[in-house]
Design a protein around this nucleic acid. Sequence first.
DNA 1: TCGCTATATCGCTCTATAGCGATATAATGT
DNA 2: ACATTATATCGCTATAGAGCGATATAGCGA
Lengths: 116, 116
Amino acid sequence: MTGYTKRRLSSAAMGMVAERFKVLSEPMRLRLLYSLMDGEKNVSELVAETGSAQANVSRHLSVLLDAGILGRRKEGTSTHYHIADESIFELCNLVCGSIYDRLAAELDELDAPPRH
Amino acid sequence: MTGYTKRRLSSAAMGMVAERFKVLSEPMRLRLLYSLMDGEKNVSELVAETGSAQANVSRHLSVLLDAGILGRRKEGTSTHYHIADESIFELCNLVCGSIYDRLAAELDELDAPPRH
DNA sequence: TCGCTATATCGCTCTATAGCGATATAATGT
DNA sequence: ACATTATATCGCTATAGAGCGATATAGCGA
C-alpha cells in the first residue's frame, strides 16, 4: 500500500500547500465548514450556529473565500456562502481517520503492560 | 460525486483536526516530510538537506513526532526519523491536486475577457 | 575520565493573527 | 433622504510560535 510516487515540489509549491493547511488549522474555520456541509448559509445563520461574533465570522469567511475553499452569492443585503472546493470533505475524512487510528493505538498502549 | 455523509464532530474533535492541520502548516515541516519520503534519515542529513539550523530541525521534528506523523529510532548518538503516518501522502496529494485545480482555474480567468 | 560528536532544549526577539468593540459600507423599506 | 438591517473592515491587545545563538544531555572513542 506504499505505492506513492513522490511529487516534485518546488519550495514555492510547498509554501502554497502549507498555506492551505494553515487556513484549515483554525477550529473556528472548521466549524464554519462543518456548518456549511449542510448546504449554503448566510452570515447571520453562521453567526447563530457558531455563537461567535459577527466580525470574526465574517473575517474567517473571507479567509476561506480567498483560499478558494468557499464561494459566495450575494442576495439583497445578505451574503450566502457555500463550499466550493469539495476536496475538503476527503481531506477531513482522511485526517479524522488518521486521528482515530492514533487514538485507538494510544488506547492499546494503555491496555498493554507498561514498558520501561 | 457529492456522496459524502457528514461525520458527527464534537468541538473537541474539531480541535484535534485543526491541530493536525496546524502541524502541517509550516513550510519547514513540509520540507522535512518531503525529505523523509525517500526513507528514514537522521537529523544531520535533514539539517544538510533543508539548510536550516539544527535547533530548528530538531524542534520541528519533535512537533511531527508528537503529532504521530513521524516515528524515530535511536542508534548510537544519532536519531533516525521516518514517516509513521502514511495518510500524509494522500493528504498532500489531495491538497496539491486542489491547488493545481485552483491555479488552472485562475489561468482560465486570465484568458477569458475581463468581467467588470 | 576526558573530550568529541549528535541531538535536544532553553531564552530570546519578532511576526502573525485570533478575537473584540467600534465603525464603515451597502441594500432595503418608509 | 433617512432609518434599519446585513455584512465587511478597522484598530487594538494578547498570544502563539518560528528562527536563532547558547547551552544541556547522551553516546562513543581515546
